[in-house]
Amino acid sequence: MNRIVYPFPAIVGQDDLKLALILNVINPSISGVLIRGEKGTAKSTAVRAIANILPEIETVDGCPFNLPQYGAVLCQTCKKAECASATTMKKRVPVMELPVGATEDRVVGSLNLESALKGGKRQFEHGLLAGANRGILYVDEVNLLEDHIVDVLLDSAAMGVNTVEREGISFSHPAKFTLVGTMNPEEGELRPQLLDRFGLCVTVDGIRDVEKRVEVIERRLDFEADPEAFADKWKNECAALTDKIISAFELLKTVEADRDAMMRIAVLCMESEVDGHRADIIMLKTAKTLAAWNSRTSVLDEDISAAARLVLPHRMRRQPLQQVGRAK
């Protein structure tokens, strides 16, 4: 795909959205982000743009799961013999897009039964979850997806594995990906159970500031007119951002949170009456990643407050009929 992608740093405003995406790529165990908001707010642009500035990953040429090397147990069942001799190659972090009308087959993969019956050969057709391994799975309008598909998505996202037990197929493969979902809350909420599985949640609005709106239009027009020149103009900023993400990734391994910090997180979660312990765990991870992103090795109060703003809003909705983020 040689189409030029809009440069990430050139996106005007939407700081929460950009931050949430950056935190997730630095630390995938934050487990995804849900973007709530109206249409036309640069949601999908941002997702594609972030993938474009990430360091390339090394994969076996032609591997449906983007595996880094041949020889996993999986490779025996996959039966793609040519992989053994294939060279590894560098490629962009994959972004798989899940359309609203997607069938379960398309998502988890399926067996082509007719060819199996005629030729006796089991030909597994890999789904989106295979292609999203080590990448980003972007789900537009996640609240309009059929329930059973959302179930499958979240199961895989949580376990890092896609397990298929249907229609004569019994198969499982790695499916570790960053889940990015978007939704317009006016069209119905996500079930609380599913909301909770998204690590972070941001609400995006259209920009209200006139000057900034003009800037959005100008940049977009510039980009449309000559994408190459536009991308070139932002090349240095992109490279700087890439470097910053890489060094934050390295620094994250040494970030420490002391007992006091964790105590603050626990109390914050208990006071907001969120269900379960997922909020605690994700908030700690987010705060640590924020510290690393700000070139620090210890978690400060400001990291915790910033993390809380991303972690708590969608979890404060305790029961099915309560609104998201409604104050108690």
């Binding site: 379960e104 059973h148 499958v152 298929v164 004569g168």
Partner: peptide, 30 residues
């Protein structure tokens, strides 16, 4: 054994074994 939500009846209870049936020509159960 982990039963995924989207499991189908044939994988839960069992069903005809396609490969065996096709190659041997006898009904065989998986």
């Amino acid at each position: 054994v982990n039963l995924p939500l989207n499991a189908t009846e044939d994988r839960l209870a069992g069903s005809i074994d396609l490969e065996m049936t096709m190659t041997i020509g006898e009904r065989s159960v998986r």
